[in-house]
Simulated assay, not measured.
Amino acid sequence: MKIRPTDDSPHVFRHRRTDAGAFAIETVDVLDHFHLDADPLHRLVVTRSSTARVERRCGRFDRRYGPGDVFLTSDPDLSYTATWTGAVSNCVLDPGLLARVAAPAPARRPEPIRFTSLDPRTPAAGEHWWTTHRYVAELIGNPEAGMPLVVDSAAQLLASVALATFPNTALTDPTIEDRRDASSVTLRRAVAYIDDHAASGITVVDIAEAAHVSVRAVQLAFRRHLETTPMAHLRRVRLDHAHRALVAADPRHTTMAAVAAQWGFTNHSRFTAVYRATYGVLPSTTLRGA
């Protein structure tokens, strides 16, 4: 990647990156105009212009963007050029993460995911992406967000929303095989795996692999038999573990926030609301033994 100013006057280029492993959150701010020539990134970079005006060329994708626009910086497998001034926010995703979210059944051959457009399906889809980006950026800025369960959940959320936001070749609707595989046997395998691995950073792909079916099939099985989703069931199991931990904890040596973060809950107000709705008391009340 080569970045250069468009004239010889002094310029300022600011870049800040928070790396969470499977993904990274970046802000880039340039004063005056810069030109960029880049080889294929082999990463999916979702960009939102904060104040920037960007002109980007990538294969057949040639567009201009202004403040508030959400777009893919490039096709991950193509080189690109861009000219811009102002600030942008980026989310960098490993394509392998996208493939795992859309993984087929273990016995079926996976197809590479290609993006057929670098723009969101709709303006509302772009806004949903930005809401998710801000939520995750705030999440990983929390000192307790280093918990593996939190980071894994955030990575999966970003990958799922990226696939929902931008047109691509990933198959998301259940096939005939998926509907056949969404059986009670699949559900039992998936539930047993969740029960045994709730303390690990498992994803819906891990659950599907354990049940020997596709992601779509395991999602359909949970909807069909339990009227929920695999990840919602996982959160319910983790909530139960957090409840039991609070019951057994000594309030002199632990906190409600520490127990919640251990089980993947970093949003204290949301955790408190869900806990109270489920158990009828505040988590702090349970911790005090009242």
Rank of each mutant, 00 (worst) to 15 (best):
A103Y: 00
I194D: 11
L118Y: 01
P167Q: 08
V101C: 05
I207P: 02
T131I: 14
I194V: 15
A103K: 00
A137S: 15
T172Y: 07
V150G: 06
I202D: 03
V136K: 04
H128K: 14
D119L: 15
E111P: 03
R134C: 08
H133K: 04
L171E: 12
E111T: 14
G201L: 01
T169M: 11
A105M: 01
H197I: 05
P110C: 11
W130F: 14
G126V: 07
A124S: 14
V101Y: 13
H133I: 02
I207R: 00
S117D: 14
L98W: 06
G141W: 03
T203W: 00
N142C: 06
D119P: 01
A137G: 03
E127G: 12
A99K: 05
T132A: 13
S200P: 01
R109W: 06
A159R: 02
T175M: 05
A103Q: 01
T186I: 00
L149H: 02
P104H: 10
H197Q: 12
L187A: 07
A182Y: 06
T122H: 06
A124F: 12
L158R: 12
F166A: 04
I176Q: 13
S184K: 11
G126F: 09
V136A: 03
D119H: 09
P110A: 07
D196P: 03
H197T: 15
T172M: 13
V151Y: 05
T186E: 00
P104V: 08
